[in-house]
Simulated scan of single mutants.
Amino acid sequence: MSTLAMSARRGHVEILTFLRDRTAVVFTFFFPALLLLLFGTIFGSESTDGGVAVSRIFTASMIAYGVLNTAFVTMGAGLAMDREDGTLKRLRGTPMPATAYLIGKALLVLVLSIAEAAILILLGVLVFDMPLPPAGHWLTFGWIFLLAVIACSLLGVAVSGLVKNARNAGAILNVPVVALQFVSGVFIHPMSQLPDWLEKVASVFPVRWMAQGFRYVFLPSSAETQEIGGTWNLGGVAVVLAVWCVVGLILCLVTFRWSGRDK
Score class of each variant (00 low, 15 high):
L173M: 10
V254N: 13
A202Q: 09
G142H: 03
M1E: 01
V201S: 08
F128K: 01
A118N: 04
A151R: 04
A53F: 04
S2K: 11
V125L: 00
T255R: 14
T255K: 14
Q226L: 13
W244G: 04
G51D: 06
G248I: 12
G185H: 00
L194V: 12
F29E: 01
L102R: 08
F27K: 07
G78H: 06
L110D: 01
I42K: 12
T140K: 01
V127H: 00
F39E: 05
L139K: 02
F218D: 08
I121K: 05
V177G: 01
T225C: 00
R56Y: 02
G40S: 09
S160I: 11
T225E: 07
V157A: 14
A98T: 10
N168S: 13
G44M: 01
R20G: 14
L16T: 15
R56M: 00
V201M: 04
L155Q: 11
I114K: 10
P32H: 02
P176A: 10
V239S: 10
L173S: 09
R20L: 05
L35Q: 03
H12N: 15
K200D: 13
V125K: 06
F30T: 07
A148P: 08
L241Y: 00
V178G: 06
T59C: 06
V254W: 12
S192V: 13
G86A: 08
G76Y: 10
V13T: 15
S184W: 02
T140P: 01
V217I: 09
W138S: 03
S47I: 06
R20I: 00
A64P: 06
L19Y: 13
F205R: 04
I250Q: 06
Y101H: 04
S7N: 07
S55C: 05
R208Q: 15
R257E: 09
L68T: 10
S184A: 06
G156R: 05
V217P: 14
M96P: 01
C152H: 13
G248C: 00
A242P: 06
F214S: 06
V111Q: 08
V178R: 08
R92E: 11
V240K: 02
G50Q: 04
G170W: 02
V125Q: 12
L19Q: 07
K164S: 07
M96K: 03
H12M: 14
L36N: 03
S192M: 04
L68Y: 05
I42F: 07
L180Q: 07
A60M: 09
L194C: 13
L249W: 10
R9N: 05
M130F: 08
G185V: 03
T255V: 10
I114C: 12
P176E: 06
T87H: 02
S259C: 10
A60P: 07
A80L: 10
G93F: 01
L132T: 12
V237D: 08
L91S: 00
M210Q: 15
S47W: 03
K164M: 01
M6A: 11
F58N: 03
P220E: 02
S55Q: 11
M1V: 13
R20W: 00
